[in-house]
Simulated assay, not measured.
Amino acid sequence: MSLTSKEETRMRGAAAPTPWAAVWEWLARAAHYRAVRTLRVAAESGDAERLVSLLHPGVAVVVDSGEPGHPTNRVVGGVYDAITLLLHGMEAQPGLVIAERSVNGQAGLMLSRDGETTATVTVDFAGPLISLVWIRLHPETRRHWNTV
């Protein structure tokens, strides 16, 4: 006796994807890319007020800057600490280029200085607001990122 994929999913206890889930993903994806663009523009221009409007009150910024065999993650929580960090790292500087990219299948940014990639940034959302910004500085963690 052979089970259909719906039956197999039901037996595993996972809900089958609904058509609405696919539509929501399609709609949210465009909104997320627009929000990441707005984040980039606000940070580059030093617009702290605009950043406040984009960030969830419980936002966290994780900076992965570890060395091989000695990984280090720094976490900053809260809107105002997040803004300080984002402005420090992304405000317009000579030689800094911030490009919007799809990073591992989600909206993100790639920072480079003088033609060399220095960081990748991914962004997670809680509804329309940014809830997590993950900045990867370590070359080993950036090596496997892919664009879609």
Rank of each mutant, 00 (worst) to 15 (best):
G69F: 02
E116R: 10
M110A: 10
V23R: 15
L51V: 02
L39I: 03
H56S: 05
S112N: 07
W134T: 14
G95E: 07
G78A: 02
M11R: 14
G46P: 00
L96K: 00
S131K: 02
W26F: 15
G66F: 06
V75F: 07
S2M: 14
P94L: 09
W24H: 15
P17Q: 09
R142I: 02
A99Y: 03
W20R: 15
A14P: 09
L109H: 01
T147C: 09
E100P: 05
M110L: 11
H138A: 15
W26T: 15
T84P: 03
E91T: 14
T141F: 11
I98A: 01
R142F: 02
R12E: 09
V52M: 08
A43F: 00
L132M: 07
N104D: 07
H144D: 15
A16Q: 14
V76Y: 12
A42Q: 04
A16N: 14
P19Q: 14
V133E: 00
A22T: 15
M110Y: 06
V62Q: 12
E116K: 08
R101V: 03
L129V: 04
A28P: 06
V76H: 13
S102M: 03
T84K: 11
V41H: 10
T141Y: 12
S45A: 11
K6V: 09
V79Y: 01
S65W: 10
S2C: 09
P57H: 05
W20S: 14
R101P: 02
M90H: 03
A82G: 02
R136T: 13
L51N: 00
L96I: 02
K6Q: 11
A16K: 12
V123S: 02
S131F: 00
G58Q: 12
Q106E: 11
H70K: 15
V41R: 12
I130F: 00
S102R: 06
N73F: 15
L132C: 04
T38F: 09
P19T: 12
V148W: 14
H70L: 15
E25C: 08
T118M: 03
Q93R: 10
E91W: 11
G105N: 01
V76I: 08
G13I: 02
L3N: 06
D114E: 08
A126L: 09
R143D: 10
H88E: 12
G89C: 02
A31M: 12
